[in-house]
Nucleic acid binder design. Structure first.
Lengths: 99, 99
DNA sequence: CGTGTAAGGAATTCTGACACG
DNA sequence: CGTGTAAGGAATTCTGACACG
């Protein structure tokens, strides 16, 4: 596992303009990737707030897009990863019970 | 030393409204503490940007203010700490040379 | 000294839409 | 499909000032 007890990485506090600066993506692109369910900012009075984790995710997305991967495919890879992680979780729970 | 290789703690990316929510301080108070040189946000097109370190610092300031410590005194404690750290740095460098 | 507030302006963000492809 | 743009409105932030104390 990467880093989970990172106290700042997951707090949604960054507005879209700054995210745009950090990632090099346009606000339009960032909003579109949300529409395609690749990222999930929170809202503070209607205004989108992102975490550093979101910023890193967006940079990964940007890389894949440059390689020609469609948002649809990125989305699919994502759900696949989640599925695998859930399986692992199941297995861990299983072995835990058995031991 | 606390945490120095924290990749997110020191990036100035949070706007004053969010800092206000995180700390419970009013924007007015936050700007005033800057005027008194207790914090040093960066600016992105005139708009203040704070780091998580700044947020923590502001919470310390808030605690001291509640105890009745003046901004002047907080400022003095600060410069004193810096002075001590510089001394330590000197000593470390010194011993380093000698060993 | 430390903080609230009203004032006017500038910069940000939001959404829905049209465009191109 | 993915992204740019102009449009109109709403929310944010900024500064300097007056107030109270």
């Amino acid at each position: 596992m990467a880093q989970k007890n990172d106290p700042y990485k997951f707090k949604k506090v960054i507005s879209i303009g700054i995210v745009s600066e950090l990632t090099g993506l346009s606000p339009r692109q960032i909003r579109y990737y949300e529409e395609r369910k690749l990222i999930f900012p929170e809202r503070s009075k209607g205004i989108r707030k992102y975490s550093f984790a979101d910023v890193e995710r967006l940079m990964e997305i940007a890389d894949k897009r440059e390689e020609g991967v469609t948002t649809r495919e990125i989305r699919n890879e994502m759900t696949k990863e989640v599925r695998e992680k859930m399986l692992k979780g199941q297995m861990n729970a299983h072995f835990h019970f058995r031991s």
